[in-house]
Design a protein around this nucleic acid. Structure first.
Length: 646
RNA sequence: GCUGCCAUAGCUCAGGGGUAGAGCACGUCCUUGGUAAGGACGGGGUCGGAGGUUCAAUUCCUCUUGGCAGCACCA
């Protein structure tokens, strides 16, 4: 007797093994028709597989949350069949469902072109309309290897060989075509529907390993219906409109050029945003008990050799080699700092530190250079020269927890001020290869766990992904169009203080090693500004906007008065401009709106006569006419920085 | 770094073996107009760089630099 429990708590009993389809049918013919798969105790399985034990069961239909993954995975199979039908000799590898869609990696000498994608799409539609059932078969290992070897599918053979002996080797057949696959799949290909689209072709390494062959990955997106697909495509368009590289140029914030690839030319407006943001963080961390320092750019290589960076990250560091000496000896070698930590330890090491000095929170907005690979560069998001809101907290092991709690609070405050929420926190714990004893790791990980609990932040684990020198927290924020960005980080470091000989005198009069917490809230200021530009679609909060108000005249008669308003705004600390061009007011409104200026103050003869301004907000439909005095006090409210607001 | 694609005016882009074109932007002039584009005229390009093929290259080929998408990387 098998007892199956439905989501609503109802139970059903069967005296012999049944399939998911049987269960659906026993509930209703309509459900059986709509069923795509079943979920047994949380595991999604084919509708046709026998159920042999008691379980909680849920019938998955197109409406279920799990349907998308099935649709996408099946779509990947359909695409693979289409590709092999159109391009014989192409080898298949793997093709999973991913966020928003799926991909499949192929091996073929000749690259796929964009035009090929259309052909593949057309073929996929044919395959789907053929509606072949997706049939699961279980094969013996040697049978599977022989079959794929005969077909010349070297990658599949490698996959099978690498499967553990205990693993069942399952094959899914759709008509003539079949693929090695763990499943699950929907009953037949027509369930894929037609709300899919092939998006792009790109290279991807076999098994993610840059030493192995480059495959061709075709990405597609797939949804339940046309409407969802359209929504997704619209979201992509929206993301494109917000692209910070485009807005950066249009709003005259910054530019890039070949002679300094990966470095930013900040224009006056962009630099205003940068300085505002940096100063904001500066005030916030000062309030939180940090001191700010500034350390050198260029160091003798011996420092980075001692810290371990020269060996570990040398390829990504900019190095300078001095001329050889007269005796023919090698010249000195230098490195431009890729991060601030070794410098901070040098400051810590000056004089004698006592436990009374701890925790010592040392911050720096230091310019760091990293020779990032060409392919990694991406606007402000990934640059070769950047500044982090970096700080190192020198503390005792016992202080890790309280410092982490305090940091979580500070980070939340900052994200909220900047218009974001913490979307996700992950705790990356000990990796296989690591420094430090297990006892110390236990303590550090426990401290981070309890810090997150004390801070009331839900989190999940990122097992084994900690740095070799200690566990870390990763903070993600979500932007206006739903994308997540990892910005904040807190890393516990047992290693660097030892390598660079940091110590303090404990209450016991003995020397002790401090622990270092590497932490950043925004991460790279460059990248964060990129994220903010996209989050706000260029319409930065008033306190960050490079130009906060423009005084625009209607006729020349108002020029003198406009100048007076402008002067008053400047005197009140507003970043203002005055527009006296002989253009119509419509054109002026349009120009400044496109420049995302938050406030436009229109002045004509009427306002000049009555010492008023017509104040109009960006994107607003109507305007408020008010006295200049009132306008100034309104502006004072608007430009208030988040940490200065009452 | 790897795979593919791309590079033409400040921007967005068209063109094509016989030394280039649009819209916007820019300049001058006219217009003084009340909340998202007023009008006329004009200036502007070694067609990313270096080689090669050719009578002739911006166009075809090779290399190189940079960009885009993805992969790898991200202390």
């Amino acid at each position: 007797m098998i007892t199956l429990t439905l989501p609503d708590g109802q139970t059903r009993q069967y005296d012999q093994p049944v399939t998911g389809l049987d269960v659906a049918q026993s509930i209703g013919a309509g459900l059986a028709k709509a069923a795509l798969a079943v979920k047994l105790d949380g595991d999604v399985r084919d509708l046709s597989r026998p159920i042999t034990a008691d379980a909680n069961i849920e019938i998955i239909t197109r409406k279920s949350a799990d349907a998308l993954e099935l649709i996408r995975h099946d779509c990947a199979h359909v695409m693979a069949e289409a590709v092999q039908a159109l391009f014989p000799g192409t080898q298949v590898t793997i093709g999973p469902a991913i966020e928003n869609g799926f991909y499949y990696d192929f091996y073929r000498e000749q690259p796929f072109s964009t035009a090929d994608l259309e052909k593949i799409e057309a073929m996929m539609k044919q395959i789907i309309s053929r509606n072949a059932p997706l049939v699961r078969e279980e094969w013996r290992r040697d049978q599977a290897i022989q079959f794929f070897e005969q077909k010349g599918e070297a990658f599949k053979v490698e996959l099978i060989r690498d499967l553990p002996e205990t693993e069942v080797i399952s094959i899914y057949r759709q008509g003539e075509w079949l693929d090695l696959c763990r499943g699950p799949h929907m009953p037949s290909t027509s369930h894929v529907g037609n709300a899919f689209k092939l998006m792009k072709v790109a290279g991807a390494y076999w098994r993610g390993d840059s030493k192995r062959p480059m495959l061709q990955r075709i990405y597609g997106t797939a949804w339940r219906d046309e409407k969802e697909l359209q929504q997704y495509l619209t979201m992509l368009e929206e993301a494109e409109k917000r692209d910070h590289r485009k807005l950066g140029r249009e709003l005259d914030l910054f530019h890039f050029q070949d002679e300094a690839a990966g470095s930013v030319f900040w224009h006056a407006k962009g630099w205003t945003v940068y300085r505002e943001l940096e100063n904001y963080v500066r005030r916030r961390i000062a309030d939180a008990g940090y001191v700010e320092v500034h350390t050198p750019q260029l160091y003798d290589s011996c420092l980075f050799k001692a810290s371990g960076h020269w060996d570990m990250y040398g390829d990504n560091m900019y190095k300078i080699f001095g001329p050889p000496g007269e005796d023919g000896k090698e010249g000195k070698s230098f490195g431009i700092k890729p991060m601030n930590c070794p410098g901070h330890v040098q400051i810590f090491n000056q004089g004698i530190k006592s436990y009374r000095d701890l925790p010592l929170r040392m911050a720096e907005f230091g310019n760091c250079h990293r020779n990032e690979a060409h392919g990694a560069l991406h606007g402000l998001m990934r640059v070769r020269q950047m500044v982090q809101d970096d700080a190192h907290i020198f503390c005792t092991e016992d202080q890790i927890q309280s410092e982490s709690v305090a940091f979580c609070g500070l980070l939340r405050r900052v994200y909220a001020d900047l218009g974001f929420e913490v979307a996700r926190v992950r705790l990356a714990d000990r990796p296989a290869v690591r420094a430090g004893s297990d006892a110390v790791w236990d303590k550090a990980e426990a401290a981070l766990h309890s810090a997150l609990k004390a801070a009331g932040l839900p989190y999940d684990m990122n097992p084994g992904d900690g740095a070799f020198y200690g566990p870390k927290l990763e903070f993600y924020l979500r932007d206006a169009i739903g994308r997540e960005w990892q910005c904040g980080t807190l890393q516990v470091d047992f290693v660097l203080p030892e390598k660079l000989g940091a110590e303090y005198a404990g209450a016991d009069g003995q020397k002790h090693r401090p622990v270092m917490l590497h932490r950043a809230i925004l991460g790279s200021l460059h990248r964060f500004i990129g994220i903010m530009i996209e989050h706000y679609a260029g319409k930065l909060p008033v306190w960050l906007a490079p130009v906060q108000a423009v005084v625009a005249t209607i006729t020349d008669d108002a020029n003198d008065y406009a100048q007076k308003v402008f002067d008053a705004l400047k005197a009140a600390g507003v970043r203002a401009e005055v527009d006296k061009r002989p253009e119509k007011i419509n054109a002026k409104i349009r120009d400044h709106s496109l420049q995302k200026v938050p406030v436009i103050m229109v002045v004509g003869r009427k306002e000049a006569d009555q010492q008023q301004v017509a104040l109009r907000y960006l994107g607003g439909e109507n305007q408020k006419t008010m006295s200049l005095t009132d306008a100034l006090s309104e502006m004072a409210q608007l430009i208030a920085r988040p940490d200065e607001k009452k």
